[in-house]
């Protein structure tokens, strides 16, 4: 463990969280990420025993999850493992694949609804041009949000994750918080 103290993407030492009516936004600072791409004609590995999801899907295993990011490419998630060398761990699990550390490449925001999936759908409509019917629980896609490229993951009917450029964390927060506040009728 380093002597240095990490800074969260939004600039604080602690991740930010805020509730707007039924919607709660949380900056997730401890999610480890590693991109995994098959070598040409490579065999699809099963890191930590988890089958990698098919096109457009997100899939969770034991202490690990992954979503599809492109042909033969995935992003592997390690909840709570940001401080570990997660890429090395995944590389050991998939030695024939190209693995790259992506933990700090992204800012991760979880959005939870206490009023069911309907509110998530309403929020999605204000954020991304994705048909919510196609973004059912267990799916993920890359799309544009306020002129930025983001990943949108529907982890459950009432839970959404939005991942964007870490450097643009404040802009993304502004977009998410603004949309949530307007939806819930509270001023920003």
């Amino acid at each position: 463990m380093s002597e240095l103290i990490p800074t969260c993407a939004l600039g604080g030492t602690m991740p930010r969280t805020e509730t707007f009516g039924a919607l709660t936004l949380t900056e997730v600072a401890d999610l480890a990420l590693a991109s995994l791409a098959l070598r040409r004609n490579g065999v699809r590995p099963a890191p930590m025993g988890m089958a990698l999801p098919d096109t457009g899907q997100w899939h969770a295993g034991e202490g690990i999850a992954a979503f599809w990011t492109g042909p033969d490419q995935w992003m592997v998630e390690g909840p709570g493992r940001a401080e570990e060398d997660f890429a090395r761990l995944i590389k050991a699990e998939a030695p024939d694949a190209s693995v790259t550390d992506q933990t700090d490449g992204w800012v991760v925001f979880d959005i939870a609804s206490s009023a069911g999936g309907g509110r998530i759908v309403d929020l999605l409509a204000k954020l991304v041009n994705i048909d919510p019917r196609r973004l059912a629980a267990g799916t993920a896609c890359r799309t544009g949000l306020e002129h930025m490229a983001v990943f949108v993951i529907r982890r459950a009917d009432d839970r959404l994750t939005i991942m964007g450029m870490r450097s643009a964390a404040a802009t993304i927060w502004h977009a998410l918080a603004g949309a949530a506040a307007r939806l819930e009728g509270s001023a920003t």
């Binding site: 991109s35 791409a37 070598r39 992204w106």
Partner: peptide, 14 residues
Amino acid sequence: ELDVQLVSTTEAWA
């Protein structure tokens, strides 16, 4: 035909 994988790491490293 080349075996090459690319990923941006601009944001990952300070």
